[in-house]
Design a protein around this nucleic acid. Sequence first.
DNA 1: GTGGTCTAGACCACG
DNA 2: GTGGTCTAGACCACC
Lengths: 124, 124, 124, 124
Amino acid sequence: MIVIDYKDKRPIYEQVIEKITNLIVRGILEPDTKLPSVRNFAIELSINPNTIQRAYTELERQGFIYSVKGKGNYVSSNIEVVNLKKAEVKDELKKIVEKAKDIGLTKEEFLDDINQCIEEVSLW
Amino acid sequence: MIVIDYKDKRPIYEQVIEKITNLIVRGILEPDTKLPSVRNFAIELSINPNTIQRAYTELERQGFIYSVKGKGNYVSSNIEVVNLKKAEVKDELKKIVEKAKDIGLTKEEFLDDINQCIEEVSLW
Amino acid sequence: MIVIDYKDKRPIYEQVIEKITNLIVRGILEPDTKLPSVRNFAIELSINPNTIQRAYTELERQGFIYSVKGKGNYVSSNIEVVNLKKAEVKDELKKIVEKAKDIGLTKEEFLDDINQCIEEVSLW
Amino acid sequence: MIVIDYKDKRPIYEQVIEKITNLIVRGILEPDTKLPSVRNFAIELSINPNTIQRAYTELERQGFIYSVKGKGNYVSSNIEVVNLKKAEVKDELKKIVEKAKDIGLTKEEFLDDINQCIEEVSLW
DNA sequence: GTGGTCTAGACCACG
DNA sequence: GTGGTCTAGACCACC
């Protein structure tokens, strides 16, 4: 289902979160699909169950999945979640734009910063 | 020196903070300039001295001003403070760019969002 | 049957969902009533059929309607659905009450907030 | 500093979060105060360092504290944080009020639910 | 069986 | 020394 990159310097649980998020927002994992159980997924990826648990907990907190005790973890209906997240991004963006203005950055400097950030992000 | 906008829904002390920050980072208030005393400033703006005190306390915590007991509040030498703030903005920007990528926004959509935010910000 | 408010800043499909939900929980649309077909409803409201489809899909996921392939969409027998939703509301309410307590809000402040919210909600 | 109640059925890390949050919002822990180190605090409470770590991580996510690698965890300037949280509560409240209206709850039923929730919350 | 919590002990990067 | 991550193994509640 997913592959861990041990050359990646980020923590494993972050990689797991990112990859599952991707599968969900791209619609590859459809709403109400059951995710692998904490234990099985850990065995499959040869990592500790706690690491998967951590990833699942965070994904639930973000609203991408929901968990049912004694049953498993499931993909949320993502129409709302993705829209919510998009609104969130825009909201945060607005705040940062205001802050940038406040501390005296010019529009040009700000756009330079953004372009630099975009370049640093891999695979976009 | 500054004007309070009572139509603004934010608390007054936040407005005071924002406006003084602006004056400082734009260099209008030069380092070591004495700010109005809490009492006088409050009278001038027709607000409660506690509100000014709160703003000054926060500005000191953020490093924009420093206070000398028995004398008053003074503008910090702001070069390093501003650089710190710029780094902060860039850091937050990087996080948001990653988030935007993760939830499936395309570069174009993201840049659209940014342009929209910039347009919404008055006087930049 | 329903009217779209183009001054409303929310997406159209959300408005459609809200309004149909209302008609169902108020009993105006009785169980097993057939809803307008996606195509006709779209024409009636002068919007894109995809928008209606999206609303119907979400309403089905929430349990308010069910679809029969080749026939159409029908109102669910709603007693259990509504009870489920009521339990959901109470659950969320409990969480927010705890949060309010945790951040140091007094009972009085909290109840003030609630009354303010209720007043802001139109037509209740 | 704080005491764990083993009769409490909630997880330990939640108790720690709640108690520290309380100390912060009540102003007993002032901004920039250093919290006990993960290890020392764990020894003091006779629990596992991971449990403290979890509490600190969550408190940082919520904005109540900030951590500096290699140095320690510190209380955030809480003026903004608490105001932010209060706004959050009100925002969530508004959403839930709308939802309650949508599913056909009357004002009276809703207020009953709230009073019930408030009663269930201990020590408020 | 499942998720969720907790303990014990280890390693890393940072300062 | 500090926080942060990860592993191993255990126990509980729920279904």
